[in-house]
Design a protein around this nucleic acid. Sequence first.
RNA 1: GCCCGCGUGGUGGAAUGGUAGACACAGGAGACUUAAAAUCUCCAGGCCGAAAGGCCGUGCCGGUUCGAGUCCGGCCGCGGGCACCA
Length: 853
Amino acid sequence: MSRYSPAEIEAKWQQAWQEANIFCARRDEARPKYYVLEMFPYPSGRIHMGHVRNYTMGDVVARYKLSTGHNVLHPMGWDAFGMPAENAAMASGGHPKDWTYANIATMRDQMRPLGLSIDWSREFATCDPEYYGQQQALFLDFLEKGLVYRKNAVVNWDPVDMTVLANEQVIDGKGWRSGAEVERRELTQWFFRISDFSEELLEALDGLDDWPAKVRTMQENWIGKSRGLQFAFGLNDGPDGHDRVEVYTTRPDTLMGASFIGISPDHPLARQLERERADVAAFCAEARKGGTTAEAIEKAEKLGFDTGLTCRHPFDTAWELPVYIANFILMDYGTGAIFGCPGHDQRDHDFARKYGLPIIDTFLPMDAEHDIEAAPYVPLKSERVRYTRIVAGEEAQTGEAGVEAAIEFCETNGVGQGVTKFRLRDWGLSRQRYWGCPIPVVHCETCGVVPEKKENLPVQLPYDEGGTPIDFGVPGNPLDRHPTWRDCACPACGAPALRETDTMDTFVDSSWYYARFTAPRAETPTDMAEAEYWMNVDQYIGGIEHAILHLLYSRFFARAMHICGHLPEKAIEPFDALFTQGMVTHEIYQTRDVKGRPVYHLPEEVTEGRLADGTEVEVIPSAKMSKSKKNVVDPSTIIAEYGADTARWFVLSDSPPERDVEWTASGAEAAHRHLARVWRIASEIAQTPGEADPQADEALLREMHKTIDEVTKGVDSFGFNAAIARLYAFTNSLAKSQAGQAAKTTAARTLAQLMSPMTPHLAEDIWSLLGGAGLVATAAWPKPDPAMLIDETVILPIQINGKRRGELSLPADMDKSEVEKAALAHNAVVKALDGAQPKKIIVVPGRIVNVVV
RNA sequence: GCCCGCGUGGUGGAAUGGUAGACACAGGAGACUUAAAAUCUCCAGGCCGAAAGGCCGUGCCGGUUCGAGUCCGGCCGCGGGCACCA
């Protein structure tokens, strides 16, 4: 073999690794463990470049840790339940299970040539009954501990498909598939009691030092802690059982500006009125229409209905406030009722103007005019204001201090109490879907909702309908209409009963898979000895798009699993370090059709900015890869053309890992050229005897040690692009070096080692070519010799008044005063001083000299 | 609206407060070759200059410092997250 041949060497070394079984992780108390995990993929059909980047980064970490003596756990699995499988079945008549497992096989076959250091013996898919059976066991344990419960909740309901839709699946208030107007329907659903952990989940964020600050902030906002006053307005002439309206406000300092009471259409008082009065019922029905998405809400008109009832203001019982039912008030935040303060809130101001309600100020700017009728006065945080009511004329701080003062004032006067609330709501996990983990409970006429017995787990999904394949073309949940699947015996009384047909949200599947990887074949959800050894995940890597839901759910699940004895206490924060990597993007080539609509083109259709027919093509840079935009680069094609090492090298080299990287054909070619060059250089060194040259040898080895130092730091801190830049530079030096064969061999072997986490196959080949012992994958990571990192002479820039005016080559250990002398003797300095004394000389050893004149 | 983050050559980007532009892409010049490919050598922020060298330069304005891409304040622009949240 005389040239770099990735196809040959990649197959060869993958086999060598497999035969040596070096990636199989076994508990070993003698070695420090290191658990590196990338967010596992959804088996959509084929892997994409984003996967390659994600898993390559994880692989760099895993291989590096392996060579620094760690016992590395680096598993892979499949997040395999979900709607795309059902949609594919609807579209093509197949079965979600077949579709999913076929995709897994395809993607595994695509992934293996990447040469990832994965322990494939731990692989599982969340749709394996062995996995979801354990998930059902977890569910039952959670149920026993009160961590999961059933309640009524308002959901997006698609009346044609007869299923609940996630918010993301509602487009312009219509079901994304059926196009039917989505209804807000109340259903009995299962919920995880995640909101009980609000405070804890919030506070524990502080300890996650190795998480991106951005992710912590996003979770903090999501949990949404707020401080406010909860109190009641007395209700005049309310229906039976209703003599007050509870309200929560974060702005008790505006209480004197109240001008109406608003309640949710789902508020108990509204419900009561609805039953009694047709006009209320009509309004509530109208108000409930439309989805719960942000988009739908944005567009919905703010509607109010005057009930004719009035409330008494707590500080002035003669002051009467009208009670409105309003469509913008949410039942599941606060108390489902508000007081409107048009003077200090834009939405309330709009509402007041629409319904002719009074607009009252409680405070005004310190020294500016403000027309409260024209616009509400919303002070900035901590702005000083002057009060116009209650304590008229007094100055006060708004913001946190103002709120606390108002709470105190109200409490002292017997009006309500200060409370802390969270935005985080309980996690509704019920889905009216087939392709998910069945919720393991049974509905019995006499016993009610009864948990399935653990020995009856897993409650398996039926594959067919009593011999005939399930028809996914029919709307609704196939489990609901299955002729026999629902029928079972009540686990409590033995009478005939019906199974729950809802399945779990797929986020449940991914909320504990990291724990399952520590003992994937255990007969219980986890094996505590294994979990104790392997947890936590030392480095978790994935996309920022999971910053909230997946990561928050996982944090909740780890806590819940600990409570149930399935994880040790140390694992309640399961991910010690988190890294969120950027996407792989690619240019889009776009033209327009006669109607001005965009038409997309494959890269091969475009030559020098034009199509074959001469049409000019617009190039849109850095776009997310998507099939419809025709800008997808298939990893398998790249691997076939250049080899896996080139793909790996490229996705790491061009951008910092947390940022997006643009895939370019020229960049990929350049990466490949470089790897071929490295191979060629190494092979020449092996074949070309050369005498030692003390000076050149020394210079090369010094640079080698500096490279070791910098690459190690780069790999340690996710500075892969910088590490790679250093490796390029070192390769250039090696190519030019006049050193002897021995020194060059040492340098090239070290280069192979330093490249091995990124380009493992090439590294093995060079390593063996140059007589390295064993596999480079398991060879000890090189250590820089501190003595070799310090140069004997350094080039010191000379600044005059902070501007570079020259440089001096001086011994590195030279005395500060000697350096000063040398600097003062420098031409430029002499010239600048012109005989005068310098005002100041700053010497930063080894870095710079600055002469102030 | 609220909360984050980011602005450096033609491009991706590098730079513990200490020589701005490492490394690479694209580009240019040359060597080798009948030619091409491959490979190798060199040039390359802007302006002035034959050169030596000088001046300017990290979105804009100011500040701190011997010294600012980096720290602080204000502005402009871009991107992301959240939001009828009371």
